[in-house]
């Protein structure tokens, strides 16, 4: 068999592979089509859809610019506070866990066990933690803070550990030659490297936490989610409109700022 024939055959095999993948994806697709059920959707669905759109286009401006505890502005600040405090607590507590799960810092078995624990923490969805913490603190933003902290610990430890695992250790050699102690090497050789990356990761997490915190209200853990669901359940679509506009604007602004800062931290401009 010469090289050309070989090439020809290998191409055929590749085609076969791709065809199979397509067949499987197609079968799965057909199977999942049963998720579409339109029988529940009466004419009322269309009316509601129309109402929602009118609601969003004509938001309750009073509510949007109201600065009392019921106003959108206050609720957004509360949501931010939940996300912020949760991120800060998580960012601090994640540091020791990250080192315990970095295989270039601690023995492999210990790193493995910590990693499994962290995967465990990450698998449980935020709203489940929310429901559990409500049993601890009662409903309200406090439960939200604890939820966000735990979620942040799970996510941040992993991202921190990735950074720790590809630390640049060459600088330590030169610090040895300068006559630095172990403590000095960590303080001036390792921490400056970690700090910029960790900060960038934490800011990203704050961005994500803000989104999560905005739905925690659905389970009663504070923030803008609860008023949103109440407004919907009682068909006050103008209110829904103003809450959604506030929320989307806030998240977009925070995302914009956080991208700016992270670029500066990671790339230096």
């Amino acid at each position: 068999m010469n090289a050309i024939e070989k090439q020809l055959l290998s191409e055929k095999k590749n085609y076969q592979y791709i065809t199979w993948i397509f067949v499987i994806v197609f079968v799965l697709f057909i199977w999942s089509l049963s998720a579409i059920q339109l029988n529940n959707m009466g004419t009322s669905g269309l009316t509601i859809a129309k109402n929602i759109i009118t609601g969003i286009l004509h938001p309750d401006l009073d509510l949007l610019f109201n600065i009392t505890e019921k106003g959108v502005a206050y609720l957004l600040i509360e949501t931010m506070a939940i996300a912020f405090l949760g991120t800060i607590i998580g960012a601090i507590l994640a540091i020791p866990l990250a080192f315990l799960s970095a295989s270039n810092v601690v023995p492999k078995p210990l790193a493995f066990v910590t990693k499994i624990l962290l995967i465990g923490i990450r698998t449980i969805p935020a709203i489940i933690y929310g429901l559990m913490f409500i049993r601890v603190t009662g409903p309200g933003p406090f439960a939200g803070v604890l939820t966000m902290s735990l979620i942040s610990i799970g996510m941040l430890s992993k991202l921190y550990a990735d950074v720790i695992e590809d630390l640049d250790t060459s600088v330590l050699e030169s610090m040895t030659s300068i006559g630095c102690t172990m403590f000095e090497k960590i303080r001036y050789g390792i921490i400056p490297q970690l700090l910029a990356m960790f900060l960038s990761i934490v800011i990203y997490r704050f961005d994500m936490n803000l989104r999560d915190a905005s739905v925690l209200g659905l389970v009663g853990a504070g923030g803008i989610g609860a008023p949103l669901i109440f407004a919907m359940r009682s068909y006050r679509w103008e209110e829904v409109g103003s809450i959604l506009i506030g929320l989307v604007l806030l998240i977009l602004i925070v995302e914009f700022i956080s991208n700016k800062i992270r670029n500066k931290l990671v790339r230096g401009y």
Binding site: L38, N40, M41, G45, L46, I48, I52, L228, I229, M232
Partner: peptide, 13 residues
């Protein structure tokens, strides 16, 4: 999803 339940009814849709 919450909004969608109002339009399409409760369920996977």
């Amino acid at each position: 999803a919450l909004i969608a339940t109002f339009i399409f009814g409760l369920g996977t849709m």
